[in-house]
Design a protein around this nucleic acid. Structure first.
Lengths: 143, 143
DNA sequence: TAGCTTCGTTGGTGTTACTAACGATTGCCG
DNA sequence: CGGCAATCGTTAGTAACACCAACGAAGCTA
C-alpha cells in the first residue's frame, strides 16, 4: 500500500519537479532558463570554450547548445567567434554583460535554494547534498 | 567555483533525470510509462475512482489522465464506464489484466530502485527517503 | 589523396507539465 | 422552478527538456 508515496524514484521526481518549477519561475524574471545559467556559469569558471566543450561540461546536448547560444548571443551575454586554429570550432566567450547577468542569476538561485531547502536543517541539507552527489557521481554524470 | 556541482537544485535535477531515464527504459519493456504506473497503483490501492479523483491522487493533470486512460483502456487494463449516479463522471476500474500488469511493473520498478540506490548503504537510503519526503510534504504535494 | 572523425547546425521525436476552452451535466440559490 | 455557477471529461495547444539522425565544412590520418 502507498507504493507511490514510498517509491524513491517518484519522490526524486516530485522533489526535482518542484525544484525545477521554482527555478524556472525565478529565472524567468531575469529572462533566463536553467540552460542559460549552466552555460554562463561554465564559461565563467572554465573560461572560453568551444560548443562541444560546453556540451560536455554542462550535459546539454550539442544541438541544444546551439539554440541557447543563439539566445545568449542576441542578448549580448556571450560572444561567438570562429576559432582560427580550427575552423570547425567556435570560441564562446563571456561578455561583461554576460558576467553581470550571471551575478544576477546567482543571487536569484540562492533565494530559490533557500526556499526549497527551508524545511531542512543545516545538517540535513549537507546530508542531502552528500547523498545526491553520491548518486550523481556513481552513475555517469556530466562535467 | 564549481557552482553547478554544488547547486542543490541542479543535483536534484540530475539525479531525478537519471532516475527517470532508468524508470522509463525499464517500463518501456512492459509498454508502459510512469503515468501508467501511477494510475494503476492508485486504482489498486484506493479502488475505482473518477478521472478527476485520479488526477488529484496522482498529480497528473486531468487533461493528461484522459490520454493515459485511453491507452490503458485499449490495452484492457482498465475499464471506463459512465457513473449512473453522476453522468458527468466516469468510473475507472482496474481489470484483472491491469492488476497483472501492475504486478509486472512493481517488479520492474523494484529492480530500478535497487539499481539507482546501489551506491548508497541501507541507512543512507532511509535518510534520503526521509529527506525527500520532508521536501515533498513541505511544498504542496499531490496525493 | 582517400577515408574517417569532429564540429556546428538543422530538423526532427517523445515525455512531462501545464493552460484554455468547450459541451454536458449537476447542484445551488434565489 | 429556473437560472447560474461549478464540475467533469475532453480536445487542442504550449513550453521546457532530453535526445537522435543527418548534413556540409573542416581537420586528421593512413
Amino acid at each position: 500500500m502507498d507504493r507511490l508515496r514510498n517509491l524513491r524514484t517518484r519522490l526524486l521526481s516530485l522533489a526535482a519537479n518542484h525544484s525545477d518549477r521554482l527555478v524556472n519561475e525565478a529565472l524567468a524574471t531575469a529572462d533566463a532558463r536553467k540552460w542559460h545559467y549552466a552555460v554562463l556559469a561554465t564559461l565563467a569558471e572554465q573560461g572560453p570554450a568551444s560548443q562541444s566543450q560546453l556540451s560536455d561540461r554542462t550535459g546539454i546536448y550539442r544541438s541544444d547548445v546551439v539554440a541557447v547560444l543563439n539566445e545568449l548571443a542576441t542578448r549580448g551575454q556571450v560572444d561567438r567567434a570562429p576559432n582560427p586554429a580550427d575552423r570547425r570550432q567556435n570560441v564562446i566567450t563571456l561578455t561583461p554583460a554576460g558576467r553581470r547577468q550571471l551575478g544576477k542569476l546567482d543571487r536569484i538561485l540562492s533565494g530559490v535554494e533557500e526556499e526549497l531547502l527551508a524545511p531542512l536543517t543545516m545538517p540535513e541539507r549537507a546530508q542531502l547534498t552528500r547523498l545526491l552527489t553520491t548518486l550523481v557521481d556513481h552513475h555517469g554524470h556530466p562535467m
